[in-house]
Structure formats: C-alpha cells, structure tokens
C-alpha cells in the first residue's frame, strides 16, 4: 500500500526520471552503436595506427569504472573545451563513449568468429573484399552479434543510473529525492528497481522476438 501511495504522491519525480532515463538510454544507444561500429572497423582494419588507437580506446574504456568516466566528462569539460556542459550532455557523452567500446568488441568478435575459410572461398572466386564482407561475412556475423548486442543494450539502461551522481534527474535521482522527502529509505528503491526491471525485461523480450524472426529467414 505504502508503495502505491509513494508512487502517486511523487509521480511527478518518477515521470521526469522515466523520461530522462529513457531519453538518455535511447540516445546513448544510437550514438554508442554508431561509434562502436566505426571503432570495430578500425580495429579490424589492416592499418596499424587506427588499429592501435581503437585497441587502446577500447581497453581503457572497458578498464575504468563508468562512474569515473562520467565525472571525468562532466568536470573535465571545462578543462578540455573551456565551457561547462549540462549534466545530461555529460552523461550522454560518457554513456555513449562507454557503450561504443563494448559494442565495438561485440561486433569485432562477431565478425572474427566467422571461419576464415568463408573469406578465402569468396575471395578465391574473385569476389572483392568489400562484397565478401557485405554478402558473406556480415550476414553470418549478425547472428552472433545480435544477442550480445541485446545484452549490451540491457546493460546500458542500467548503467545510465550512474548519471544521478552528477545530478542528472534520471530515475535513480528521483528515488533519492523521494527517499529524502518521504524519510523512507527502502520503498522508493523498490519502486525504482521495479521500473528498471520493467524496462530491461521488455527490451530483452523484444530482442528475443527479433532474433527469432531472423532465424526463421533461413
């Protein structure tokens, strides 16, 4: 009962929180996936310098906590570009940059998991490298990549909660406010956990449907 009362009483905070969390997740997913795809191409390229740069980037990002990265972007923006950026912008940049590293690794390992013989058979027929990628390697790699990418999206939604540490009014932030306003430490957390779960569960179900529809195609 208490939980429902809390929800109704503080619905304004929760609604804003939901909106911010979803917006942050969605935008980071778009930017992160785009940047991650580019990074994976660099990492797979035969040119040494782009390859080394993307490797370093991926390793550093995966080897440091998201909470540190978000603070670095937020507090570092003044040092780097001479102006403050909003908490939301900092969170969006940090989560996108972070997610890009994971997405890059997922795509790279998906592509590299395809038997070398596929590339060789195609090239031996005189098909160009580009067309081999497009028609032989990627269609097979996608089947390995999608499930892992789905997991990454679920993780990303949860990770956005770190944005609350720099004052972004996301779901996690809403629960902190409700905790202090209602003097209840526990129930607001239950609510927010429930909402996060609702999002991630819905997303994984959608991904499952999508994967099944893909595997029907062959």
């Amino acid at each position: 009962m208490n939980i429902i009362n809390l929800l109704i009483k503080y619905k304004h905070y929760y609604l804003v929180g939901v909106k911010i969390t979803l917006l942050l997740s969605f935008l980071s997913l778009i930017f992160g996936t785009t940047l991650g795809s580019l990074l994976s191409l660099l990492k797979l390229s035969k040119y040494k310098i782009p390859k080394a740069l993307s490797t370093v980037y991926i390793e550093v990002v995966r080897g440091t906590p998201m909470m540190v990265q978000i603070a670095l972007v937020y507090f570092g923006s003044y040092v780097m570009i001479g102006m403050d950026i909003s908490g939301f912008a900092a969170a969006l940049i940090a989560v996108s940059l972070n997610s890009a590293a994971y997405v890059a690794e997922i795509i790279r390992s998906g592509i590299q998991s395809i038997d070398k013989g596929q590339m060789e058979a195609s090239r031996s027929l005189g098909i160009s490298e580009r067309q081999t990628m497009r028609y032989i390697i990627l269609p097979q790699a996608v089947k390995n990549i999608l499930p892992a990418l789905g997991n990454e999206f679920v993780t990303l939604i949860k990770e956005t909660s770190v944005a609350s540490t720099i004052g972004v009014a996301d779901l996690m932030y809403a629960s902190k406010i409700v905790q202090s306003n209602s003097f209840q430490p526990f129930n607001p957390l239950i609510i927010v956990a429930g909402i996060y779960f609702l999002f991630t569960f819905t997303l994984s179900q959608l991904i499952g449907v999508f994967e099944r529809s893909l595997s029907h195609n062959d």
Binding site: A121, R123, S124, L125, G126, I127, S128
Partner: peptide, 9 residues
C-alpha cells in the same frame, strides 16, 4: 580479383 575469377579453388 580479375585473375582469381579465372582460377577456381
């Protein structure tokens, strides 16, 4: 690629 088109493997 042109040469490979003439050599099957």
């Amino acid at each position: 690629d042109k040469v490979r088109q003439q050599i099957g493997m």
